[in-house]
Amino acid sequence: MDAVLALINQNVAPLFGAWWPEVSITLWTVIKVVLIVAPLMLCIAYLTLAERKILAWMHVRIGPNRVGPLGLLQPIADGVKLLLKEIIFPTRANKGLYILGPIMAIAPALAAWAVIPFSEEWVLANIDAGVLYLLAVSSLGVYGVIIAGWASNSKYSFLGAMRAAGQMVSYEVSMGMALITVLMVSGSLNLNTIVEAQRGATFFSWNWLPLLPMFIVYLVSGVAETCRAPFDVVEGESEIVAGHMVEYSGMSFALFFLAEYGNMWLIAAMTTTFFLGGWLSPVSFLPDSFLWFFLKASFIIFLFLWFRATFPRYRYDQIMRLGWKVFVPICLAWILVVGLWMLSPLNIWK
């Protein structure tokens, strides 16, 4: 490895002259991005299989079992099928925006991973304003949905886009407010510091217990933010077919699908980081590692699937009521409670 690096430094570096530091840092970053995105794509692909299998088991069915052993190659087959399908453009669609829609949906879902700390050292950008970056980037996902819904020139698509925009903007508010308490107790916007602040002897020191109401608000808002069941009126198969993606086919549809499952993983990773102690080990005699992060995120993902198999779909006005009239007041009250708690002698975060 060192020999290769030396060779590159000798032969390639002079070509760029004074620009070499910038070029090399860009190359390194691209390599790291690939190292994050490639496993993420694999996780997304196998999440679709896990979803179908787990739902099937909960319904006492078998689930996909034809492609490969135990149906393990099913996501690959689905991917190949979607790649080979024709992308259909509706006649009166706005071509440019119709293509831009799915791209705008997937780009923020992938960009947000830049600041997620997978373990103590494994983080692409360990920036000070990590939480702000996450909030800003995840608030962009709604553009893909709106643009796609409008550009398709279809009533169903447009209705889906309207629902999505209202829902995602509303639940961002309660998610952001739930995070304020996390910031208060950790005193930092840096994700590594937030994880480090939760360190203790056991998993009772993680934020989920002292901030339990916020943990629940955050998790439920996360489900609503990703438009998963029981908050999936955006797609609402029985009313508006598939919402904003009804006109999409082939790979352009697949991008929406990837974005949705990528966002599920992202919410799981964020919940893990903020409330479940990130990469920290649950008991002090086991070492901290990336595996804990993965296990915790997978547990949250399992909750997503469990919710889907359990709850019937909310009505749209009930979704709005839950966000604005239940979660936001709870958050405001709990911010005050945590503030007073931190000022009182019972303060456990010092």
Binding site: I127, D128, A129, L132, Y133, L135, A136, V137, S139, L140, V142, Y143, I146, W150, F158, M162, A165, V169, E172
Partner: peptide, 25 residues
């Protein structure tokens, strides 16, 4: 000025312009 930059994206791009787009559409 990273705080201002991120706030511009979060508040204006993430919320205000979404509602704007909503109305214009």
């Amino acid at each position: 000025a990273e705080f201002l930059a991120i706030m511009l994206v979060m508040v204006y791009v993430g919320a205000v312009m979404v509602l704007f787009l909503f109305v214009v559409m």
